[in-house]
Amino acid sequence: MSVVLITILTLAGLGALAAVILYLASQKFKVFEDPRIDQVEEALPAANCGGCGFPGCRAFAEALVKADDISDLNCPVGGPDIMEKVADILGKEVAKTDPMVAVVRCNGTCENRPRVNQYEGATSCAVAGALYGGETGCSYGCYGLGDCVEACDFDAMYMDKETGLPVIIEDNCVACGACVDECPKDIIELRKKGPKSRRIFISCVNQDKGAVAKKACSVACIGCGKCVKICPFDAITMENNLAYIDYEKCKLCRKCVPECPTNAIHELNFPPRKPKPEKKEAPAKSPESSK
């Protein structure tokens, strides 16, 4: 045999041996993957937003398949309909969850919160947050630079040029929480949409004492406690000079709203209040009728 033929046969033999070794190794160390993971992933909306608490829909699908109880797992984008499909695939029960929506807990508009300086740095809330408290006397309020809008993948937010605050487009919001995580001031919160999309919340996060907060923003919560006292359901608490409404306890009675002296409590999507009837004064008695 020629040297060339021997070389070819040797290389072919080594290749075949290597293939056998790799095959045996792959069989021994292969990781079984539940085929239901692909089914669940296909049922999910493929948003990969992270709102479920996992880095993507694939990771969420794996968690759903592995979990004995999926009642605490939820896809905010797909909502109850998608979770019911997932439950059918896995033969598990899913808890009913109320739809959520993002709310902006700051009403420090340009009119309510006058500027005391001008920021000329990078147009990023994260950058501004690392440098100083903001352009106004309220160090808790919105920077107005739009990081939350950039973080939203569903076109559910925009910056209002007149107010300088982000606006939530409720129909587009899937409550993924991306804007909540992005805001360095923690002024965005996920709350229950509520029946007929009606919600009541304190639109302020200022923890300064009353006089200081009021000086910085005309609609700040001043921690007076009137809303706490009037609430019949113990849904309002006061901590660090700031009131907070627990949406789990709130019955939307709206008794707290007119009690707030600074209009820091917001009520959304409610019908207009009926005007209170004016009290009629009794007609004055004439001198002749008194005789």
Rank of each mutant, 00 (worst) to 15 (best):
Q207T: 15
K226T: 09
D208R: 12
C224E: 11
G223S: 02
C224N: 11
A216V: 07
C204Q: 12
G210C: 03
G210T: 05
K226H: 13
K209I: 14
K215G: 06
C227Q: 12
A216C: 03
C227L: 11
G210M: 07
R198S: 05
A220G: 09
I202V: 15
C221P: 07
A211E: 14
A220S: 15
S218F: 02
R198A: 12
D208M: 14
R199D: 00
C227T: 12
K215W: 03
R198T: 07
Q207P: 01
N206Q: 06
R199F: 04
R198M: 15
C224T: 06
I222C: 03
V212A: 12
V205P: 00
R199I: 11
C221H: 05
K215R: 11
N206L: 06
Q207H: 14
C217V: 04
S218V: 08
C224M: 10
V219C: 02
G225L: 13
G225A: 13
C217L: 07
S218Y: 00
S203H: 08
I222L: 07
N206E: 04
I222V: 15
K209V: 15
K214N: 04
C221D: 06
R199G: 04
I202E: 09
A216H: 02
C224F: 03
I222T: 14
D208G: 01
K214Q: 09
C227K: 10
K214L: 14
C204M: 13
A213M: 09
A213W: 09
C217T: 04
Q207C: 08
D208N: 15
I200Y: 03
S218L: 05
G225E: 11
A213S: 12
V212L: 12
I200W: 04
V219S: 07
N206R: 00
G225N: 10
V219I: 02
D208C: 12
V212G: 00
V205K: 15
Q207R: 15
V205N: 14
V212F: 08
A213H: 05
G225W: 08
K215T: 12
Q207G: 10
I202L: 14
I200P: 03
I222N: 05
G223C: 08
A211F: 08
C221A: 07
R199W: 01
A220W: 00
C221W: 01
A211P: 01
G223N: 03
K226P: 00
A213T: 02
V212N: 04
K215Y: 05
V205W: 02
I200D: 05
R199N: 00
I222D: 01
I222W: 01
S218N: 07
R199Y: 03
G225V: 13
G223F: 03
A211L: 13
N206A: 10
D208A: 14
A211V: 11
V212W: 02
C204W: 12
G210I: 04
I222P: 06
A213I: 06
K214I: 01
F201V: 03
A220V: 01
I200R: 06
I202Y: 08
I200S: 07
K214A: 12
K209T: 14
K209Q: 14
R199P: 04
C204H: 10
G223R: 09
R198D: 01
S203L: 00
G223L: 11
I222Y: 02
R198C: 10
I200K: 08
